[in-house]
């Protein structure tokens, strides 16, 4: 096998946009495609689709240093050197979650992820109003703070440099910047998946995903994997394991509602307007409506 045959992929998204659903679907699709597949998915044991690109452990291993000894500004330009050998990992571990924007203000114009040997990126996006509501539950923040976060050009995850952690800083920027950074980059092939289409046109959307990722893509298999990973099914699976391991402390459950349109119901008109006025170009491009659009 050549490196190319064994390439790796990114599943990139702004947080709370359906990335985990995608990872669970891939895991289930691969599980079902095994000859001896039986039983059902265990959320806390089976969902291992490869390191998140911001994992300190992963970066330490790839760069050969303790990354705590570098500042985030020093680290960002180096992060793109991690991952070229990702194909050495097992089949299921070739799909790397990423919440970073493609580049950061510190990355010296370089991607913060490796593109060498990468076969492509699935960019998962969701209506920013619904992202705000989901962020609110996930981080236990009020909605006003979530709206500000989506509009903050310097927003990111793990921003503090005052203590260590298992992930490094992930610069995201404003929601629209994040989308454009991935969708318009020219270095790796991209498949854009709207969360809304994953819900409304599941079979079609996930079949396209399976084909893009060179995964088993017989329609019946894809539909079975989709059925097994529906939001209701995931909620049940989460109950079975007593809480998904990726759920933060204080967050009641990881798989919560999953539906679309919650933002329009829960955000105030002013909050929706604020989002739309700053994000309108990107929202319109991907057919997301604001409060003025009815």
């Amino acid at each position: 096998m050549t490196d190319q045959d064994n390439g790796y992929w990114y599943l990139a998204s702004y947080p709370k946009s359906g990335n985990t659903w995608c990872r669970v679907f891939i895991t289930e699709l691969l599980r079902l495609s095994e000859e001896d597949a039986e039983g059902e998915l265990n959320l806390n044991q089976d969902v291992e689709t490869g390191s998140i690109a911001s994992s300190r452990h992963w970066l330490d291993d790839q760069l050969g240093i303790n990354t705590c000894d570098l500042s985030f500004a020093e680290l960002d330009p180096l992060r793109g050197r991690a991952g070229e050998k990702a194909w050495l990992f097992a089949e299921g571990e070739r799909f790397h979650k990423v919440h970073d924007a493609f580049r950061s203000p510190d990355s010296m114009g370089r991607p913060v992820v490796s593109t060498s040997g990468c076969k492509g990126v699935v960019y998962i996006m969701r209506h920013p109003e619904d992202v705000a509501v989901s962020l609110s539950h996930f981080f236990s923040w009020d909605l006003a703070r979530c709206v500000e976060f989506l509009l903050d050009p310097m927003a990111g995850l793990v921003m503090t440099d005052r203590h260590g952690g298992h992930q490094v800083r992930q610069y995201m920027g404003r929601w629209g910047q994040h989308v454009i950074s991935w969708v318009d980059q020219q270095q790796i092939p991209v498949l854009v998946m709207r969360y809304e289409d994953m819900l409304a046109k599941g079979s079609e959307t996930f079949l396209e995903l399976a084909k893009f990722l060179d995964l088993p893509n017989q329609p019946e298999l894809v539909n079975q994997a989709l059925e097994n990973t529906s939001i209701d099914r995931l909620k049940k699976l989460e109950d079975q394991v007593g809480g998904f391991s990726e759920k933060p402390e204080g967050c009641e459950r990881f798989f919560r509602s999953g539906r679309t349109g919650e933002g329009a119901e829960k955000l105030s008109f002013e909050q929706r307007q604020k989002l739309a006025s700053s994000l309108d170009v990107v929202m319109k491009r991907f057919d997301y409506r604001g409060p003025q659009d009815g």
Partner: peptide, 8 residues
């Protein structure tokens, strides 16, 4: 060796 990386 195969276990080398761009940095190592």
């Amino acid at each position: 060796s195969d276990h080398s990386t761009p940095s190592l």
